[in-house]
């Protein structure tokens, strides 16, 4: 299935505000029962974008939600079943970035890089897209299997903000699913997309960062060259190079002990 076709079939029509939302046929909420699972889904995003709301919706759990940046601090896990596949879903702490040395960011960063989730869903606030794209672009450097869940669409509409999700999807090279997690609107599309990416029905082509600093690009290229010799199959060499330039200890360790070689696409 091509990217464009997929996008079209997922498009939410504005009049879908009234369509039934509670008949997501194939979803079975598993709460915290997820002993054996087929796929791992990570939920990442800025604080206060509705991650916990999405998480609760999918798992039937009751993680605390609140209109307050910084509410979820510890990592929460839960499960759901969709089309007879079992998914474990991890609600990562909300972060603005993945580049700092704060504990939250380390948890989120290491999980996405070393935990290698089958799908990473970025929950973004549609009313403040630009800020949310900061994290999105960083995650796209680490992993390809990403969905952008464009949440709070109702808020955006209320404030006269329209987002053309087709343009956005094309620019980012990943599927973009508009949702209203509070009422469940769009969650079925999100589920379908999670499923498609997990079983490999759908391939993404995320964009990579373009820096206009010659010096930085040169430095990155140089390290990427060295990494390619030692870890030719590593999918995210540029990110690793960047982290080395930032002195990230967990990356340094994983290079020295060769663990980095285990990361596959």
């Amino acid at each position: 299935m091509s990217f464009q076709e997929q996008k079209l079939s997922n498009n939410i029509q504005p009049d879908c505000a009234n369509c039934p939302i509670h008949n997501i046929g194939n979803l079975k909420k598993l709460g915290i029962n997820m002993d054996d699972f087929d796929f791992v889904v990570a939920l990442a995003g800025n604080p206060n974008t509705g991650k916990s709301t999405v998480f609760n919706y999918l798992t039937g759990l009751r993680q605390h939600t609140g209109n307050w940046p910084g509410k979820t601090v510890t990592r929460a896990e839960g499960g759901f079943e969709y089309h007879n596949k079992k998914f474990k879903i991890v609600d990562l702490p909300g972060t603005y970035s993945l580049l700092s040395t704060s504990v939250d960011e380390e948890v989120a960063r290491d999980f996405i890089l070393f935990g290698q989730p089958d799908v990473t869903v970025i929950v973004a606030d549609a009313t403040r897209l630009e800020r949310n794209l900061n994290l999105t672009l960083q995650i796209l450097e680490i992993t390809d299997r990403v969905i952008l869940c464009l949440n709070l669409i109702d808020e955006a509409q209320r404030n006269g903000i329209t987002i053309n999700e087709r343009i956005l999807a094309k620019e980012l090279g990943i599927p973009v699913i508009p949702t209203v997690a509070r009422s469940g609107r769009g969650i079925d599309d999100l589920l379908k997309m999670i499923y498609d990416i997990a079983i490999g029905n759908f391939k993404t082509k995320p964009i990579k960062l373009k820096s206009n600093s010659e010096e930085l690009n040169k430095a990155i290229d140089e390290i990427v060259g060295l990494i390619s010799v030692e870890f030719p199959n590593l999918p995210n060499k540029r990110w690793v190079a960047l982290r080395l330039l930032e002195g990230d200890q967990s990356i340094i360790n994983s290079i020295l002990n060769g663990e980095l070689g285990n990361i596959k696409i």
């Binding site: 603005y96 970035s97 580049l99 700092s100 040395t101 704060s102 630009e130 800020r131 900061n134």
Partner: peptide, 11 residues
């Protein structure tokens, strides 16, 4: 330190 990074993270 953290102060600087947080401010930049916020845009």
């Amino acid at each position: 330190g953290q102060q600087r990074r947080r401010i930049m993270d916020l845009g």
